[in-house]
Amino acid sequence: MDEIVKAALKKWPNVPDCRDWLGLDARGDWYMRDDRCQAAGPFPQVKGSRIQHEKLREFIHRNYLADAQGAWFFQNGPQRVYVELEAAPWIWRLEEDGAGGVRLATHTGQPATPGAAWLDEQGRLFLDSPIGLGLVHTLDMGLAAEQVERGLWVPETVRFAELPARHGYVPSPAGRGAAGGAPARH
């Protein structure tokens, strides 16, 4: 977390949380959801405006965390902005490592080590890691398929609806109180 954010939290410790204003889609893109978008429907059916400003995305990435109940948020100064998740808290990007394997990193650039793999009813590949569950980005499915074909990743089938409870994350914290959900890994 940025030092300026920590200082703002100390200065203004009781700023109300913000919900339903920020979304993370299945490709790792952030979306701002104003009142009009929220009134038109839930995320991801109505995504909102894609955040394209590089410095803002970097700021969100550095201050993206989970609470004890598994709801993910962006700490924006003294205000906690909860994130609507289309698929999972992390979107995995893959890169060849030069030795026949792949390096795994989150959409925020954080490196991770892949663990168990799951394939949902839509054919999407999810990987667990010590920092939590993530969805493999669609552009990286070729590299992922190579890992599966080589037997390095052996996906089990899973219903998408089972993943949040199984992996301790809250896909839609909008309207949720402080209680509920399973502890998060982050």
Results as ranks from 00 to 15, higher is better:
Trp21Ile: 09
Leu22Arg: 12
Leu22Tyr: 12
Leu22Gln: 08
Leu22Asp: 05
Gly23Asp: 08
Gly23Glu: 01
Gly23Cys: 04
Leu24Asp: 04
Asp25Met: 06
Asp25Tyr: 12
Asp25Ser: 08
Ala26Glu: 10
Ala26Thr: 00
Arg27Asn: 12
Arg27Gln: 14
Arg27Met: 13
Gly28Thr: 07
Asp29Arg: 15
Asp29Cys: 11
Asp29Gly: 09
Trp30Met: 00
Trp30Ser: 00
Trp30Asp: 00
Trp30Gln: 05
Tyr31Met: 09
Met32Glu: 11
Arg33Ser: 08
Arg33Leu: 01
Arg33Glu: 06
Asp34Gln: 04
Asp34Ile: 06
Asp34Arg: 11
Asp34Thr: 07
Asp35Gly: 00
Asp35Ala: 14
Arg36Cys: 02
Arg36Glu: 05
Arg36Ile: 08
Arg36Val: 13
Arg36Asp: 10
Gln38Asp: 01
Gln38Arg: 15
Ala39Phe: 05
Ala39Thr: 03
Ala39Val: 04
Ala39Gly: 01
Ala40Ser: 10
Ala40Gln: 13
Ala40Val: 05
Ala40Asp: 11
Gly41Tyr: 14
Gly41Phe: 10
Gly41Lys: 13
Gly41His: 12
Pro42His: 09
Pro42Ser: 15
Phe43Lys: 04
Phe43Arg: 07
Phe43Ala: 04
Pro44Lys: 01
Pro44Cys: 01
Pro44Ser: 03
Pro44Ala: 07
Gln45Ala: 15
Gln45Glu: 14
Gln45His: 13
Gln45Thr: 11
Val46Leu: 03
Lys47Asp: 00
Lys47Trp: 01
Lys47Ile: 00
Gly48Trp: 05
Gly48Ile: 04
Gly48Asp: 01
Ser49Leu: 14
Arg50Met: 10
Arg50Tyr: 02
Arg50His: 02
Ile51Thr: 01
Ile51Lys: 00
Ile51Gln: 02
Ile51Asp: 00
Ile51Gly: 02
Gln52Asp: 11
Gln52Val: 10
Gln52Phe: 00
Gln52Asn: 03
Gln52Tyr: 03
Gln52Ala: 05
His53Thr: 03
Glu54Tyr: 10
Glu54His: 14
Lys55Ser: 14
Lys55Met: 13
Lys55Phe: 08
Leu56Gln: 11
Leu56Val: 15
Leu56Arg: 13
Arg57Gln: 15
Arg57Thr: 13
Arg57Gly: 11
Arg57Ile: 15
Arg57His: 08
Arg57Ala: 08
Glu58Tyr: 07
Glu58Leu: 04
Glu58Arg: 14
Glu58Pro: 00
Glu58Phe: 01
Ile60Phe: 15
Ile60Gln: 07
Ile60Asn: 02
Ile60Pro: 08
His61Asn: 15
His61Ile: 09
His61Pro: 04
His61Met: 02
Arg62Glu: 14
Arg62Trp: 12
Asn63Phe: 13
Asn63Asp: 03
Asn63Glu: 04
Asn63Val: 06
Tyr64Ser: 01
Tyr64Trp: 06
